[in-house]
Design a protein around this nucleic acid. Sequence first.
DNA 1: CTGAATGGCTACGAGTGTTAGCCATGATAG
DNA 2: CTATCATGGCTAACACTCGTAGCCATTCAG
Lengths: 185, 185
Amino acid sequence: MPTPERTSLDEIIDAAAGLLEKGGPSAVTMQAVAQAVGVKAPSLYKRVRDREALLGLVGAAAADDLTARLETASGGLDDLLVAFRAFGHDRPEAFRLLFTTVVDADRLAATSAPVLRATTVAVGEAHALEAARLLTAWATGFVTMELAGAFRLGGDLDDAYRYGRRHLVASLTQDQVAARPAQGS
Amino acid sequence: MPTPERTSLDEIIDAAAGLLEKGGPSAVTMQAVAQAVGVKAPSLYKRVRDREALLGLVGAAAADDLTARLETASGGLDDLLVAFRAFGHDRPEAFRLLFTTVVDADRLAATSAPVLRATTVAVGEAHALEAARLLTAWATGFVTMELAGAFRLGGDLDDAYRYGRRHLVASLTQDQVAARPAQGS
DNA sequence: CTGAATGGCTACGAGTGTTAGCCATGATAG
DNA sequence: CTATCATGGCTAACACTCGTAGCCATTCAG
């Protein structure tokens, strides 16, 4: 390679992720990212197609981070739900990005894997996917609303999350309903 | 009033909502909104503080729309959940905006009201709020993920939503767990 | 008929993303 | 050891954004 590289794609993604978390999406400007890695803005375009692509990479990295956290979460349904919410608290902007940007299917599948394993042991293979969707949808919605400040009718949110976990996990494992097919009226 | 008004705040909000739905948040530019209502961009600032405020008004109007839909949804838990998702499908960008922008507490309370009424009859006053949060969090997460294209492991989404509705409604009304206090480990 | 307040406008400034094109570097071929 | 040339960085520039300043025409109130 010719002239010495003054930065790298990974460093750029990390810088963008840092700016995102500090100031929201509007703070991750090409110029700010460039400055953070010690380069001028146009140089970024040698590594990244455009800003949208950069945000996509940040989202993909965030998905990997979430996957890693879930993988090390011991495998119980409850632990997975706790780890999921913790990710949302640690990296709220990245969490939002995950459900705004479209991340590629493979990465999504990797993130789903630990949840699917857990629901398989909990409710059996037949309804593992539906159960996983029930759990992730609830957790996603809870954290989304929490981060958006949409829970404003009082009450402790930790308690509310615990209430939901108990309810859902119990409902799935006791599975009075899970045994029935999903079709119906 | 002096010079004849060529537009109105409501018209501006409607135009912005239309542009939002057609091309996402980035499409609702002051200039595009102005052109849509037959005016030049700077004139908008006579009615709206800035772009962020305009988006806030669009979000508030969307919240009112959602509230109205829920109010006319007959009051059953299942009907409320169906109406909620229908809103997300009809106005996906407005739906996203609701959980991105911060809308004021009063309006949020109005939106919650029909859900709270329904959960009150379903599980009693003691756990109405927690039940409402469980339901809205799940529905919000489901629609959010659906709109983000995050459900890519196959299966029919209508079925998946039905599955979740059954599970949650049954779990709440049978309330094997709901009777227990939310505290605990 | 006059005065004043108001909504619209043009012009402008600051800041954004992005492209074009140049230049210095340094690994490699001879 | 020299010459080549691909490459990463840079400056300059363009198009577009939001937002402000300030003017002008209108029309209502007296």
